[in-house]
């Protein structure tokens, strides 16, 4: 290890220790396990700063936080899945003895023996780990993919196609009383006749041009090409608008993290 790295490490360790002691001192009045509590808060702050240090460049502190995060989170989700899916939903239907063991209420039912099938499929999936019998894992996979494909087939045909057709039927003439009336009452108010009609036209033309942009089996030349170009313009305006919309929301995330550092850890603001 380089001399400078050792120096940095030493400084961090000392700062950590100081923070721990000060925090423990501060918490001793109110908390029972104040030493552990103070350590945990300091550690959380250390991890927060380690992750933020990534913005400067990759460094050992970030690597430490990253690797710890991966290990702990993988175990967390596994435990969560184990308790909430297998223990809570499967075991109570499978056997009274096992439910007894896991302290779960047994749920007797007429068709509970069917739940052995996913257990078998799950075990077949684990055959993946075997070199010779790995191919068996394709069966449960086929079941998963087939079921969801069937589900998605009808679901998206309905929500993303059929229901969009009727949603696009917007009146392109609103309160239409002739050209003369239109021009004599012309204004740019947001709820005026012109803006409302313009909006419906933009929606209609926008959807058409957007769809034309997504045509794959025809060359985008001539009128078709122009429409497709208008389509991509509208797409880009939309992306810009939703990008701009998100910017502000994201900045508040940072404010939240800074609050933790300055309030919960350092106690500088109350």
């Amino acid at each position: 290890m380089k001399r400078s790295s050792l120096l940095v490490l030493a400084v961090v360790v000392i700062l950590f220790a100081i923070s721990w002691i000060l925090k423990a001192n501060q918490l001793s009045a109110t908390e029972e396990n104040y030493i552990l509590e103070a350590f945990l808060i300091t550690f959380a702050a250390f991890l927060t700063l380690s992750v933020l240090s990534f913005l400067y460049k990759d460094n050992p502190f970030y690597k430490f936080a990253e690797h710890l995060f991966v290990g702990v989170s993988a175990a967390f989700w596994m435990c969560l899945g184990f308790w909430s899916t297998l223990v809570k939903n499967l075991i109570p239907r499978l056997s009274e003895g096992l439910s007894e063991f896991f302290n779960e209420p047994y749920m007797p039912g007429d068709y509970n023996f069917f739940f052995w099938i996913p257990v078998i499929l799950g075990i077949l999936l684990l055959m993946r780990l075997s070199k010779e019998h790995g191919w068996i894992a394709r069966w449960p996979l086929a079941f998963i993919v087939g079921t969801t494909a069937g589900l998605n087939f009808v679901r998206y045909l309905r929500s993303d196609f059929i229901e969009q057709i009727s949603a696009t039927f917007v009146p392109l003439l609103i309160e239409w009383q002739g050209v003369g009336h239109f021009f004599s009452n012309f204004n740019l108010a947001i709820d005026g006749q012109f803006v409302m009609m313009l909006s419906n036209w933009v929606i209609f033309v926008g959807v058409m041009c957007g769809l034309i942009y997504f045509f794959f089996s025809k060359e985008h030349t001539g009128v078709f090409g122009t429409a497709s170009r208008v389509g991509i313009w509208i797409l880009m305006i939309t992306f810009g608008a939703s990008f701009g919309y998100t910017v502000m929301g994201r900045i508040s995330l940072l404010v939240g993290r800074l609050t933790f550092l300055f309030k919960d850890w350092l106690g500088l603001i109350s």
Binding site: F54, K63, E66, V70, S73, A74, F76, W77
Partner: peptide, 20 residues
């Protein structure tokens, strides 16, 4: 390979791969 089923831990790990 599998990393983890946690959104941001996954991101942290992929970021590490990109930088290293």
């Amino acid at each position: 390979y599998f990393v983890t089923q946690s959104q941001f831990a996954y991101v942290a790990a992929v970021n590490g791969v990109m930088l290293r």
